[in-house]
Amino acid sequence: MPHDQHDHDHDHHGTSPSGHPYRHDNDEALTYWQRMEIAVRELLIEKGVTTAAEIAAQIDLMDSRSPANGAAVVARAWTDPAFKQRLLANAGDASREMGFDIGPLHLIAVENTADTHNLIVCTLCSCYPRNLLGLPPDWYKTRAYRSRAVREPRAVLTEFGVDVPQDSTIRVHDSTADMRYIVLPARPAGTENLSVEELAAWVTRDCMIGTALPRAPQVVSTGA
């Protein structure tokens, strides 16, 4: 598994005397690539290609995207058959209908059914339905996932705790630069009386990648 250099972030174990985990700020030794980022950004601003405000707004937009967006789309599809039809016909337009900015991408929703399970991957790099899910998790970008998802999807799914019956079909969808997929999981039995908002809480990020199934929200005890 490729070892991203930011893994060093996790080498700082322990907590401060006040009990807070140590946290990085912008005070580590400047790397070659950071120098390049600063230089490229400054040149782009000076050449009038972009502005500091535009870059900040783009980061703000990226930070605001989360799997909750995708979960809202899935929950709506579970409760509104006409919407589900529109979603399966054109996921981009259906998501835009709910106010989500999808950009110029083709977005395709693939539906899990009783006999078909869908899994998404980007074998070349890290294409991902980020407009609905935010940035991809680290494992999605690893060479191990990108290669094994297409070669041995059943084994990969088992490692994620998803056991697809042998007589079911697994469809693996390889994302491209302009075509992104999102999995529409099957609505779990026993959720007939839940509201759209309650249903959305069952839909996790991994459900929409295909590496998990919807499940009742876990009650998380909040620590200090």
Binding site: M1, H6, H10, H24, W33, M62, L135, P137, D138
Partner: peptide, 16 residues
Amino acid sequence: MEGHDFALWEKRVDAL
């Protein structure tokens, strides 16, 4: 390998 906080410089690369 779960997600981590991205550093500011990484978010800037993404934005660019």
